[in-house]
């Protein structure tokens, strides 16, 4: 499968692995950098990390699927994270994520076909005072109301259009 990745991309992954050469347990740091810089960590990339670190692909895949921070699929242009931690859940977080889900036509964890939006369910993000909280591309929306959601989505949709 490695062959699917072009030479330049492979070189970049190797370069990221080399950043943590002396580290005792470099895996999380390598994967975090890849996730941040490329938006996802697919199996082909894990194979390269495995070859560089000597950690089995099975173990790397286990780590990637254990932490919700890592993604196997490319994320959309705008990543919407709905907090479902205890405080947000009590304040109606489930209704918020359901509403995003309905408007975007995707389930949590999925990305819209046009690649504009990814919807994620998050565990507590530490913004309990703002419950129910939503993050979009890192920006926090506090005390979100179900009624506001169409406007929020529209804002990003138009934003995307404006960029084109």
């Amino acid at each position: 499968m490695v062959s699917k990745l072009n030479g330049a991309a492979e070189k970049q992954i190797v370069e990221i692995c080399d950043r943590y050469k002396g580290e005792k347990t470099p895996l999380i740091m390598i994967l975090s950098d890849i996730q941040r810089e490329y938006g996802y960590v697919p199996l082909e990339v894990q194979e390269i990390v495995s070859a560089k670190t000597g950690i089995s692909v099975a173990e790397i895949y286990g780590v990637v699927t254990f932490y919700s921070f890592f993604s196997l699929e490319p994320k959309g242009k705008n990543v919407i994270g709905c907090c479902l931690g205890t405080a947000c859940y009590v304040k109606g977080g489930q209704r918020i994520i359901d509403q995003f889900s309905e408007i975007l036509g995707i389930k949590p964890g999925q990305t819209t076909e046009d690649g504009l939006f990814t919807l994620d369910a998050l565990r507590c993000i530490g913004a309990c005072a703002a419950a129910p909280a939503v993050t979009i591309n890192g920006k926090i929306y506090a005390r979100v109301n179900v009624k506001d959601i169409p406007d929020i989505v529209a804002e990003y949709r138009e934003g995307a259009v404006a960029h084109v």
């Binding site: 495995s50 089995s56 099975a58 286990g62």
Partner: peptide
């Protein structure tokens, strides 16, 4: 190089 691993959580 183990083939099997735990997946998800």
């Amino acid at each position: 190089n183990g083939v099997l691993g735990f997946e998800r959580r």
